[in-house]
Design a protein around this nucleic acid. Sequence first.
DNA 1: GTTAGCACTCTGCGGTGTTGAGTGCTAAAA
DNA 2: TTTTAGCACTCAACACCGCAGAGTGCTAAC
Lengths: 341, 341
Amino acid sequence: MDKRAADILLVIIEEYVNSAEPVGSKSITEKYPLGVSSATVRNEMHKLEEEGYITSLHTSSGRIPTDKGYRFYVDYLTERIKQREIEEKIYKLLKRVEIEETLDDILERLFLGNPYTSLGVLKRNVSRIDTFHILSVAKDTYLVLVIFRNGIAAHRLIKEQLSDKVQVNILSEYLNEKLYGMTLRDIQTTDFAFIDTFDRDNKAFFIRVVSEVMDILHQYEDNEFFLKGKENLLSFPDFKELSEVKSIFDAFSREMELSELLLCPTDDAFSVSIGNEIKNENFNKLSIAKHTYDLGAEGKITFAVAGPTRMDYRKVMNSLNYMETILGDIIYDKNDKKEVQ
Amino acid sequence: MDKRAADILLVIIEEYVNSAEPVGSKSITEKYPLGVSSATVRNEMHKLEEEGYITSLHTSSGRIPTDKGYRFYVDYLTERIKQREIEEKIYKLLKRVEIEETLDDILERLFLGNPYTSLGVLKRNVSRIDTFHILSVAKDTYLVLVIFRNGIAAHRLIKEQLSDKVQVNILSEYLNEKLYGMTLRDIQTTDFAFIDTFDRDNKAFFIRVVSEVMDILHQYEDNEFFLKGKENLLSFPDFKELSEVKSIFDAFSREMELSELLLCPTDDAFSVSIGNEIKNENFNKLSIAKHTYDLGAEGKITFAVAGPTRMDYRKVMNSLNYMETILGDIIYDKNDKKEVQ
DNA sequence: GTTAGCACTCTGCGGTGTTGAGTGCTAAAA
DNA sequence: TTTTAGCACTCAACACCGCAGAGTGCTAAC
């Protein structure tokens, strides 16, 4: 594509992103100093239409960008906003804070900074147990504590009047050794038949403890999804039918579809999917820009912004690229808050 | 109001709830065997309109119920579905399970059982600390554990290489005594000036621990809101403008407005607010039915269902009244799941 | 290669006529 | 006195029409 055609395409896209109205040759030449007349622009637009970058709604309407047109635009932007070497920096910042809480904060700021929908997913690696304890913390109250390899801790409280026969400390030490390095699957396939040799009280307590541990593991194996600003989509003239929006919202609320959307692997950490490039037909009228960060042993984290295909790609791509600014702010705030006055 | 007028009003309401179309005198007499002609019904409708129970959209349209009409209907239903003595039973059931998780499950079922929006709020009483521990759980890893009066436990993990001088056990015992019975406010107003007598390492660790405790308390003082099925509202022809729905959704996402909606005190545990009876004008086109259960020391819990004023009050009121069935199912499932296979 | 000019096309808007459901009123019937 | 049949009237919804305006495609001249 030659320079002039590209310029005209970019103008059409930016104009349409702003106005949500089809763009005509005359209005372009009036507004932008392209140095050519509307007739020339018309000729170029005709070619652009033939090549599939723009389309018209009816015979004599102005043009609107196609998914292919947006793709050209996004690739052009990607070239200009040159990928910066920030992965390492973000990675370190993310390791410094409690992920779950912070993911929520990040999305809150992504959400405040743009008029679209902010999404996130924390994909945890399968959790392996590092340390296990049963602690007596009050009368008839026992704390089941699991610390994972990645440093996260989880607990359950068991309130039960145990008979004197129950050897809590021995069970605790035994399980600490036994559970080391295990995942949920490991525990599920372990044969605990030997507990039949325990007396009734010890056996009951053992079963209770192991089921609590499995419950904890279960909880920590799920991916966690975050979503903010769904309702923003209601403001766009791009969606005229309530039913369209409903099907998008419904799809957002199904984790299966969200994970397809956010977790499908791409070559680059950063990627933009436009309209029909997204397989799921519920999202066909949306574009989504996403950035995935590898947290090493912890797992992976993905931030994304979804909006109508007519979205301000420049702004969205910028805010996803300057994530470390957002994170910096959050960490600063957190440290500030934790000072005892 | 005489019997016949009431019958006609009820028919109008139930018909309108089903069809979302204004109800005319002729269609009523054709569909329901009232034993009178459409002209008589017309006369009655005229009276009902004068008294404000129904209204017409234009000179020759059928009638639709007003908020006052729905109020009459709901009061009539409340009379018939006689309030059952179930508070005690629910209360006991709720005490048996982990509230937060279960609240989510309950709403999921409320949500599956009706086409409206399900809401819930857990209003915790101000949390007082019962037991406090600092436990050494692994190399350079310390667990700060707070158990509240109401039996809930929360923890934070501190990973830090402490100097030998730090007397963890002494600090733990000291704080266990000191923090007993305290709330967040108590801690905030306590003067910890005496820690200036500690050496540098102990002081730093003490500050770290206390700030973690405050963070825990802070977290447990917030009300927790739950919301499911917002998108259901998009299916109703009652809302024609996307902007209307947007303002409702936006209000739902502001906790202030949600708490006004759910926590405003009423004489009865069970109540229905209809349209303009709700103060917040964002919710003027909605009705909300809610049921509050007192959990004693734990706090209070409210379940609610919100929909268009044209909602199936009978169904909604029933499902809120038969909450103990829902809860029973959930507890059964939970016990079932926890068995070690 | 670019442009001015012109014929043509299509949407959106306001106006008009028709249809059907529904009302209110009146006079007769019960 | 209450109920009903009948009738005139009203209004929304829909289809239809013509017009204005924005935009295109084509052609001939620059």
